[in-house]
């Protein structure tokens, strides 16, 4: 097992700065969004009771007089949050094989007695733990902020971890398909571009599917189902009406399937000298 842990340690050494910056950015954002929620809580409650204003909050399924955490979670759909985890997932996935081939550094590793499955498993472990850490940083930032900002009912930390895990699960299939594409390729730009386009396409499909004027369109359900982002619902994750378990299971299943295919592709492919 020692070569495997050597690889894991090296991977964490490689990603230490991007991991720290991503986690710090999300922790800060988690804090900031609690501050915003604290400032807006009373107004949002009034709007939900009156049925006037804050339509975007109502669209997330918030009822009248929701718990404070649901109001907090309405802000967790912020594109910057999704951008950070998507960048981490796609970047790590596309770096795993094709970038290493392009750089010529894969030769250094694979000419040693390291199995291909160990190599890829070390990449998956590092990236998955990194993803969980980044998502946990968001929850930790938000939880810390609850001590310094006034909320009607401050949430417990474990409850914040549910939407944070949903966020990590959202990025898991993105990592999976980026890794799969990378496992076939010999250059970095191609898997990075294809995975980014796929992710952007999914995001656009989600945005279109929630625009009210398209609500009755025949293709609206298809656009909704075509998007991974439909399965990320931070408000549902903390509420009783949750499809949380199903959504997370689907996301983890999709990611695992892509990763399994990546293992298969990497085990049977040629490893050429740097491209």
């Amino acid at each position: 097992m020692k070569p495997f842990w050597t690889l894991v340690r090296k991977n964490f050494h490689d990603v230490r700065w991007s991991l720290f910056l991503s986690a710090a950015a999300l922790a800060a954002l988690g804090w900031l969004l609690v501050h915003v929620a604290s400032l807006q809580e009373t107004r949002i409650r009034q709007a939900l009771s009156n049925g006037k204003g804050f339509n975007w909050v109502r669209q997330m399924g918030l009822d009248a007089d929701p718990p404070s955490i649901e109001i907090m979670m309405a802000f967790w759909n912020h594109p910057f949050i999704i951008l950070v985890v998507a960048m981490w997932a796609i970047g790590r996935g596309s770096n795993a094989v094709s970038t290493e081939i392009e750089r010529g550094t894969l030769d250094m590793v694979m000419s040693r007695p390291v199995s291909r499955s160990s190599y890829l498993a070390s990449q998956v472990l590092t990236s998955t733990l990194g993803l969980l850490l980044i998502a946990a940083a968001l929850a930790a930032g938000a939880y810390a902020a609850t001590f310094y900002n006034i909320l009607k009912v401050p949430p417990p930390f474990w409850l914040l971890m549910r939407p944070a895990f949903n966020l990590a699960a959202l990025a898991f299939p993105m990592y999976g398909y980026a890794l799969l594409l990378s496992s076939f390729d010999i250059v970095r730009w191609r898997p990075l571009t294809i995975a980014s386009v796929l992710t952007l396409g999914g995001f656009i499909a989600r945005v279109i599917s929630v625009i009210p004027v398209f609500k009755d369109s025949v293709w609206q359900p298809w656009a909704e189902r075509a998007s991974l982002f439909t399965l990320y619902n931070p408000v549902d994750a903390v509420s009783e009406r949750s499809r949380y378990d199903f959504d997370v299971a689907v996301l983890l299943g999709l990611g695992s399937a892509c990763i399994a295919l990546a293992f298969l592709a990497f085990a049977t492919r040629d490893l050429p000298a740097n491209a």
Binding site: K2, P3, T6, L7, R9, K10, H13, D14, R103, G104, T105, D107, M108, V109, S111, R112, P113, V114, A273, N274
Partner: peptide
Amino acid sequence: SYLPGELRMPGSLSGLGVLKFLSGLRDG
């Protein structure tokens, strides 16, 4: 043991760090 013709190494490691990494991949 193989020495590749076109050699690339992780620049962020020290010389000793690279040797530790490479020998770590062979159980130290």
